[in-house]
Nucleic acid binder design. Structure first.
Lengths: 208, 208
DNA sequence: CGAAGATGAATGAACGTTCATTCATTGTCA
DNA sequence: TGACAATGAATGAACGTTCATTCATCTTCG
């Protein structure tokens, strides 16, 4: 029963961050209390302060971890055989990764917080820039992208793709949709539509 | 100096909401205190409670007001002579309306809050649906939209446009850009690019 | 006068943070 | 080996602060 015996030194930081993620998604950064987090993690309040300086430190540690997750995601996207598949990976990550639909709420909270916290804003900007550059390269290398319409540069295409991705993420928040797979499907429909629009050389069927 | 003398019966509710908007954008819904708001409005704390039941009531009154503003915006967009101009109006509203760049932060906060408050989520969904329907109609009526690529329906086009719009709004938050007009320019470049992509019948110049 | 508008000190709950204390584990040494 | 010392992870009550909300009081004005 006790995981202390099985795992001699649980990764407390990760445990706390997992709990914090749940609490933050459920109540928001500033409404979730340290007591909520400690209860969710099944530890005492004081212990959190052994691993984190204060609440803000917990928040930025979560942002750091998010950065690493995005990095991994980008790596996975890079290894997909086609650009479309890369985009599918990037677009659907937040609705089926470890967490269910918690991610979306967290990311929007992160941006909201970034609008007031310059340190966090820098971090988020940094994450975004890395990811954007990654996708830009992905596009530049892709054979599919050679006939992009309107002479859009890879960078411009990436910007557009990210804008849509963020926009869909916000939309996701409003959906109290039952199934996670349903979210995923909706998300996929949008990526594919966008991909066709950006990279498929105008294959309009005959009628109208 | 005092506007109480100039205006015999100030619209207190509006005055409080204006102050709240500034405070919420500056500190967020839950970090902005009622004292902050009263100070910003130049009135006492207690007076707020004469016009609003509680803090949550202030927040949802702001959402209601936002709904009306979106309504007006849509009306203005409807009266533009071309679809492109309508879209330009819709895309740039949040960076040059009454408030400077406060709007973006407020809207992202609103979504973040909606992810936890079902009442607010319904309101935001409702606003979005109305606006979306308005733009869908705008597109359906527009002659420019007749040669949309990939047989996208007006609704699908509107969804895409709104996704990009929301995405740009989030991006706006990360920009500590100096000039409001600069924001506006960047925003306009994106709308136009999107418009060309969605509605301009592939006018690729000769080379490449 | 009296009703409505407006004030801000008072209240109590909730919060982030601290720290004296506990106690299972590990190390030491005869 | 077994008794004892040392460690530091973990606890949770307590502290000082902040906050939303209330209300007794004062002002304004017809």
């Amino acid at each position: 029963m006790s995981n202390t015996q099985i795992e001699p030194s649980v990764d407390r930081r990760a445990q706390i961050l997992d709990a914090a993620m749940i609490c933050f998604a459920k109540r928001g950064f500033h409404q979730a209390s340290m007591h909520d987090i400690s209860a969710e993690a099944g530890i005492s309040v004081g212990l959190i302060y052994r691993y984190f300086e204060n609440k803000e430190d917990v928040i930025s540690a979560m942002a750091d971890r998010h950065k690493k997750q995005i990095h991994d995601l980008l790596e996975r996207a890079r290894q997909a055989p086609t650009l479309l598949e890369s985009l599918e990976i990037l677009f659907t990550a937040h609705c089926c990764e470890n967490a269910p639909q918690i991610q979306s709420a967290f990311v929007v909270d992160l941006y909201a917080e970034a609008s007031r916290n310059p340190r966090l804003a820098n971090l988020v900007r940094d994450i975004l820039e890395t990811a954007m550059q990654g996708v830009t390269d992905l596009i530049a290398r892709s054979p599919e992208a050679q006939h992009a319409p309107q002479n859009l540069t890879p960078r411009q295409l990436a910007e557009l793709i990210f804008a849509v991705s963020r926009g869909m993420l916000m939309r996701d928040i409003l959906e109290t949709e039952r199934d996670p797979t349903e979210r995923r499907e909706r998300q996929l429909r949008v990526v594919r539509r966008l991909w066709r629009l950006l990279f498929k050389p105008e294959t309009e069927p005959a009628y109208a």
